[in-house]
């Protein structure tokens, strides 16, 4: 499977382009009558967002409108501010200017609508908790102060683990899980929150092929249910197969829109600058060696 999608950018580009022309949504969504169950506001609207660490700007003038029910990939080189963008939306780091609204509300009033999947390396996995304990953390907000995790919430946590295919590992201490399984635990924890918008920081980083497939499956199921997923992603080869909406980021938004339209050589060149040439050369060389 990996071989068929690996590094054949021009091919997938073409097929995805055709597909996206058919499924291309008018955007921003004006047709409120099509989605009456949701408020007219969009899942994530970012305006004029600038973030700086120690006077060094990391994100500049970000202007984004993420449509509902889409699987959105955030793609860009290292240090492009992809994780920072998610963290700024979640109020985890201060914004120098601008705002990010979730369904028309600032984040602190829309927390129940958002689930966050941090990078796997951000925590110490040699922590004395089981997989189920970690997943149950997704219910802490619902439970509120002082209340213990109830039997119902434990059952829900088990269901979430079931959805990512590792219910049998519920009682396993988290350090005894593989990298892919740890990532699934994080996803299950996000599922517990029953959110509308999922912000995921590199869920595909260093996971096995089976996990990658399981995650993609899960993302598709979420987006079929009308949930919106923002996924920080690294692997250019799989971008167009996984996502139907793209944000190309390198401190500024280089381009955003339907994946097929946005994923062009020109845009990638703008995003990655000189770095893409290197990637291209590598891809070219690989393609030759396969043929």
């Amino acid at each position: 499977m990996a071989n068929s999608t690996g590094l054949t950018i021009p091919e997938t580009l073409e097929t995805m382009h055709n597909e996206s022309l058919q499924s291309q949504a008018t955007f921003p969504p004006k047709q409120t009558e099509d989605r009456p169950e949701h408020p007219p506001e969009i899942p994530l609207a970012i305006h004029d967002l600038t973030v700086a660490y120690h006077r060094k700007p990391v994100l500049w003038d970000i202007e984004l409108n993420i449509p509902e029910g889409k699987l959105v990939g955030i793609v860009g080189p290292n240090g492009a501010g992809k994780s920072t963008l998610l963290k700024a939306c979640l109020d985890l780091i201060p914004k120098t200017s601008g705002w990010a609204h979730i369904y028309g509300k600032p984040y602190r009033k829309a927390r129940h609508l958002v689930a966050y999947v941090p990078q796997r390396e951000s925590v110490d996995w040699d922590f004395p908790v089981s997989a189920l304990d970690v997943v149950a953390m997704g219910a802490y907000r619902r439970l509120g102060w002082f209340r213990r995790v109830s039997k119902e919430e434990k059952d829900r946590a088990l269901e979430s683990l079931e959805q990512v295919g590792i219910a049998h590992l519920a009682d396993r201490q988290i350090s005894q899980l593989s990298g892919g399984q740890q990532q699934r635990v994080f996803l299950a924890r996000a599922l517990m929150q029953d959110a509308e918008l999922y912000l995921m920081d590199e869920p595909f980083a260093a996971v096995d092929a089976a996990t990658e497939e399981a995650i993609v499956d899960l993302l598709r199921r979420l987006s079929e249910k009308g949930k919106t997923c923002l996924v920080v992603h690294h692997d250019l080869a799989t971008v167009t197969t996984y996502f139907d909406w793209l944000v190309l980021l390198n401190m500024r938004v280089v381009a955003d829109g339907p994946a097929g339209e946005i994923f062009t050589r020109e845009n990638l060149q703008k995003t990655y600058g000189g770095k893409l040439n290197l990637l291209e050369t590598a891809a070219e060389a690989l393609r030759h060696s396969i043929d």
Binding site: L92, V123, F127, R141
Partner: peptide, 22 residues
């Protein structure tokens, strides 16, 4: 003992705790 759940979350994953509004 009363704050065991809250401390657990803080110690394991403070960014997630903050994102949840703790």
């Amino acid at each position: 003992i009363v704050l065991v759940k809250e401390f657990l979350l803080l110690c394991f994953d403070d960014a997630y705790a903050a994102a949840q509004g703790w």
